[in-house]
Amino acid sequence: MSNVVDTKNADIAAKTTQIALTINGHVRRLELDPRTSLLDALREDLHLTGTKKGCDHGQCGACTVLINARRINSCLTLAVMHEDDDIVTIEGLGSPGALHPLQAAFVERDAFQCGYCTPGQICSAVGMLAEAKAGWPSHATADVAAQSTTLTETEIRERMSGNICRCAAYPNIVAAIRDIVEGRR
C-alpha cells in the first residue's frame, strides 16, 4: 500500500512515519504509511497472521484484537493511533502447547469448521467475558440498571453478534463460551 503512487493527492507524498507498538508484551518498531490499518500492520508488517482480514469494513469481526483489554475491530483503526496502547492478538493469548482456556474450549467443542473467524471469535469472547464480569448490560439484558449480569445463551449470542461465522458454527461457539462461563474449564 505504501508503495502505491497516488496521483489524486499527489501533493501529499505517501510519507512513512516511525512508530512503536506494544504487541503481546513486546515493543515492535515500525515504519509505516499513516494509512496502514492496525490489521495490516499486524499481518503485513509484523507477520502476525493469526488476526484475520474478512470484510475489512467492521462488519464481520474476524480482525478482533484486544486494546488495553478491550475488544475492537483492528481493520477500522489506524496503527499510528495505537502508540502507548497494550495490544493483544490471538498469538498473545495462548500457544499450541499452552492454550488459553477459550482456545481449548473451542477445540473441545469443535466450535469452527474453516476456522477463519476463530481468532476473532476467541479475542472477542475474551473481551466480552470481561465486559460481562464488569456488569455491562447488553441488548438482551432485561434490567439495564442491574449491577450484575448472568450470561445466558441469549446474552452470549447478543454480545457476540459482532462476530460472523460463515460456516454457522454458532451452536458450538456458544457451547465453548458457556463452558468457560459455567466453570467447566
Binding site: G58, G61, T64, R70, R71, I72, N73, L76, T77, S124, G127, M128, E131, R159, M160, S161, G162, N163
Partner: peptide
C-alpha cells in the same frame, strides 16, 4: 446499536 467491538471504539 452496532457491536461490542464498535461500541468500545
Amino acid at each position: 446499536g452496532a457491536s461490542g467491538q464498535l461500541r468500545n471504539k
